[in-house]
């Protein structure tokens, strides 16, 4: 059930590019972290086949071609970064759209039931028939997650899904993802900003820097003081949680930065 990407390349018209990314996404949840503009969203867009990228993708050691639309439609769900939703489609209809590939003019009872189940699982019962434009940020995010998982994809890719959520909802969301990946045959790849959440929930972590992979591996191995200093130009103290996962206590902007870092961040007076 492992997703493997090799030599992923993509270049924007503006010049920014990611080059020769090789990454493994084994384990249930993989977090992609890194500074702004390091290529996290770009990478996940490539993996989700949302742009014209070049490279190779393997699932369970089987090569997946870009033209293999069926594979993507049946097995992969991608949740882009969310902006405000102006549509007056209801939550129910939005979730139903997750089954787009198999929908016809008549919605079957079975399809309706699947939507019901997902609504219950994500506790969206109260807003099921409200318009999507009337939802709060948290509810919208859950609704979109429901849309993504209803087809029971094998691979779930989420780009900064926690952006508009308060701290409670952040946990609720990730708990949900954890539960889904535990119960079903699903891998989740999530782009995250919060390093602690990444450390807490992800089995493996990929660290991006300036369009390339800086490090990848188990959370405990990858999230180190040096890595964080080098990549984010921040000083921190590392602790261990009861489960043995790293917990990061941030101190502040790094006193000494490598030249590479200085390019990314302005030197600030401390």
């Amino acid at each position: 059930m492992e997703l493997r990407a090799e030599n992923v390349n993509y270049r924007y018209a503006s010049g920014f590019q990611i080059t020769d990314i090789c990454a493994r996404f084994g384990g249930k949840i993989t977090a992609i972290i890194g500074p702004n503009g390091s290529g996290k969203s770009t990478l996940i867009k490539c993996l989700a086949n949302q742009v014209n990228w070049s490279g190779d993708l393997y699932y369970d050691d089987k090569r997946i071609r870009r033209s293999d639309k069926d594979f993507y439609l049946s097995n992969l769900s991608y949740l882009p970064q969310t902006s405000l939703m102006g549509a007056s489609v209801t939550v129910f209809e939005a979730i139903l759209l997750g089954l787009l590939n198999e929908l016809t003019m008549f919605v079957t009872k079975a399809q309706e039931r699947r939507v019901e189940d997902v609504i219950n699982a994500l506790e969206l019962g109260g807003v099921a028939h409200m318009g999507v434009d009337e939802l709060s940020g948290g509810q919208l995010q859950m609704a979109l997650l429901a849309q993504a998982i209803i087809k029971e994809p094998k691979i779930l890719m989420l780009d900064e899904p926690l952006n508009h959520l308060d701290v409670h909802k952040k946990f609720a969301f990730l708990n949900c993802i954890a539960k889904l990946t535990a119960e079903k045959e699903m891998v989740a790849i999530i782009v995250l900003h919060d390093i602690n959440l990444a450390a807490r929930y992800a089995d493996s972590v990929v660290v991006m820097q300036r369009g390339a992979v800086y490090a990848q591996g188990k959370a405990g191995d990858v999230i180190t003081k040096d890595t964080l200093c080098e990549v984010y130009a921040v000083d921190c103290e590392l602790h261990r949680s009861r489960e043995g996962r790293p917990v990061v206590e941030f101190v502040g902007i790094a006193r000494e930065m490598s030249r590479a870092c200085a390019i990314d961040y302005e030197e600030a007076a401390i």
């Binding site: 902006s83 102006g86 549509a87 787009l100 979109l144 849309q147």
Partner: peptide, 19 residues
Amino acid sequence: SWKLTSLSMGEQTAKALGV
């Protein structure tokens, strides 16, 4: 119909759904 409904949720969402 369904593809158009997905498009009304935004180009990004529609694309993400495979349209």
